[in-house]
Amino acid sequence: MKLKDIEHKLRSEQETVKVPDMLSRVKKAPLNKLLSGETPAQAFKKKLAVRLLVTATVLLIAAVFCFAAMLLFTENGKANPHAYLSIKTSGEGESYAIFVTGDLSKAACFDERTGEQTSFYALSALYDLKSTDKVEICAICEDASLASDLLGKLREELSGAYAGFNGASVTTSVNSDSAIALLKQKVSAAGLSAESDLTKLIDQYYSVL
């Protein structure tokens, strides 16, 4: 037997071997899943992981939005306040306006001189109160009993937060005519026609401060 015969036989034998038709299979193969030859199982796991990641991200974003909305609602006082409390100190001549919502939680606290929002626990004029200083607190609210209630709570908070508060002379009033007149004056100074209804008046002041 010649070597050529062996080559010829081998070639003719191979021609009878059934070669699988891969063309249709390769064409049908979802290339996006099988890129770089990864198996469908690997592709499935990857897809599942991506889905879980996307879901977790969406949930996280939603949670962040909800949290931010809640924070905005409570801290920045975007909900209309139902009462207005003002604090004046004689020492530094500073005054603060505190707006509160119906559920008695603080809505916002402003420095009335600058109009800037501040933290309730950072009222600089209350830090170094002396026994000779006077503090005036006035609560204005359509519901007078709610105003008294708020006043009591505010005194409690201030005495807890500021050591000098208890030694100072503190006077309180509820819906006093002079305080309401002053509030109306502030609203008018901002170019608005002051409402006689106290809730509306508070809203007006809140919107311009």
Binding site: P20, V26, A29, L31, L34
Partner: peptide
Amino acid sequence: EDMMQVAYIRLRT
């Protein structure tokens, strides 16, 4: 058979 499929898919990708 499988490896031929892998080879042609890799060729394309």
